[in-house]
């Protein structure tokens, strides 16, 4: 069936027109394509339009960025004076130390709370065994203990926030999000 054969030949040519324009076809394919072009006006038209598009694209000018654009080092980036490897190492150490610092803070707060409780329990026992303290002394001691517990509470809240923001979010959640976003972006390119 010559019609179908001819159509197949046109499809074959159409797929190779762009590489032909860029002179990227192998010798045999090139000869075959040129032979078909001699007999097919439609494919010759396709070739002409492919060449025209390339010609028009290459005629588009490179643009000049306005001179007001700042190319020099931005103010306030004084850290640039620090050598890059040293800065990198410092960032790495600081980043690595964050979880350790958070854990240390939790331990210190817990130890502080334990000491305070022990101290308060001892004080209460001493107070109970002696009658030399007045009701006012007891009231003041109660206020002291409440203040101490308020401090413990405040710092434990702060610690929870640091653990959540700097250890969990910065260390695990955000990097994971970045990795997922990047892999999603790369996926269509690798089609």
């Amino acid at each position: 069936m010559p019609g179908a054969q001819e159509q197949n030949r046109c499809e074959w040519t159409l797929e190779r027109i762009e590489p032909y324009v860029d002179d990227e076809l192998s010798g045999a394919e090139r000869i075959e394509l040129e032979r078909h072009l001699e007999t097919c006006p439609a494919c010759r038209e396709d070739l002409a339009s492919a060449r025209a598009v390339v010609h028009e694209l290459r005629a588009l000018p490179e643009l000049r960025c306005p001179d007001r654009m700042k190319v020099s080092e931005p103010a306030g980036s004084g850290e640039e004076s620090m050598r890059a490897p040293f800065r990198g190492a410092l960032q790495w150490v600081m980043h690595g130390l964050r979880p350790a610092m958070a854990v240390m803070l939790v331990v210190v707060v817990a130890a502080g709370a334990y000491v305070l409780v022990q101290w308060d329990t001892g004080r209460r026992a001493r107070l109970a065994s002696t009658s030399s303290y007045s009701a006012r002394d007891l009231e003041l001691a109660k206020i002291d203990a409440m203040t101490a517990f308020a401090y413990v509470n405040k710092y434990s809240r702060k610690t929870r926030k640091i653990v959540r923001d700097e250890v969990l979010n910065e260390g695990i959640v955000y990097p994971l999000e970045r990795v997922i976003t990047q892999s999603k972006r790369r996926a269509p390119r690798e089609r």
Partner: peptide
């Protein structure tokens, strides 16, 4: 890159049909 370039130019040709 080559495949995408050729495919992209073909798409351009289709959208500019009748103009070039």
């Amino acid at each position: 890159v080559k495949v995408y370039l050729h495919r992209g130019r073909r798409m351009l040709r289709t959208s500019l049909k009748g103009k070039v």
